[in-house]
Design a binder for these strands. Structure first.
Lengths: 129, 129
DNA sequence: CTTAAATTGATAATGATTATCAATAAAGGA
DNA sequence: TCCTTTATTGATAATCATTATCAATTTAAG
């Protein structure tokens, strides 16, 4: 049977408290601040289990590095210029029309990753020209 | 300046001829059938350059393995049961409302990865119950 | 035909992730 | 409360895709 451990609770607590979308490295650093004795294999195992359960979202940042996120109500925009990842909230109209377009498949998870140039970088670019 | 080589042409030709979404391993095998002398570093370099140029799409399959695709007019659905990846075509209405929702960001690329249970696996499941 | 520089192929290096395994600790029952 | 079972942990080694290195080759312009 499944057992709750101090380590798991701490790991998920740290991720829940993080507003950014940490990579494994960043997550490890944050966890080490609270309890350096937690092994990195445990962090991997815990996060992977939660991703399977659907509790944690794995975001595919380019370059074989993932980022993690505990909130499921939004999607992600990555600026190709500055590299920052912003949250994107989509209206329920868009989402329902998406799932209608996909019927009769049963959708369990939607990952939308949008790439482009953010407002900030666009304005900077215009000034330079 | 940029130079066209026999290797690059062959690599892109093989990818263009492939209707599936090959991983690097699969792509390497396909290329080796045509010309085994092409080094794998060259395949990586060529594909990476094309991804940067926007000519090739990199699909994030779970597990640190990417898949590649040369056609840009569709998105992807992965069945969590059988693992197959299907193409998903979205109406222009959905796509325009998506980019409207994201203004004033400038969108250069949209990656939509949908996970769920495909029709085939759903029907099998129903019979088993 | 020459030449400069981009590209290639082979190989080593990197870096994230996973597997291994003895030690530890959670949870249920005596 | 104290056992007992077994999931979980931590440390370490192993794996595997990808990237860096570098001499040799090849492209394309003059």
């Amino acid at each position: 049977m499944e057992r709750k451990t101090r380590q798991q609770q701490l790991i998920l607590q740290v991720l829940a408290d993080t507003k950014t979308h940490p990579t494994m490295q960043e997550l490890q650093a944050l966890i080490a601040k609270v309890d350096p004795s937690i092994g990195q294999a445990t962090i991997y195992r815990t996060i992977n289990r939660c991703v399977e359960k659907g509790l944690v979202k794995r975001i595919a940042d380019t370059g074989l590095i993932y980022r993690y996120d505990m909130n499921h109500d939004h999607y992600h925009f990555k600026c190709k210029n500055c590299g920052r990842i912003e949250d994107v909230y989509l209206s329920s109209e868009i989402l329902t029309s998406l799932s209608e377009a996909l019927a009769p498949k049963k959708i369990t998870q939607v990952d939308i990753m949008i790439y482009g140039i953010c407002q900030n970088c666009r304005e900077k670019n215009e000034k330079e020209m």
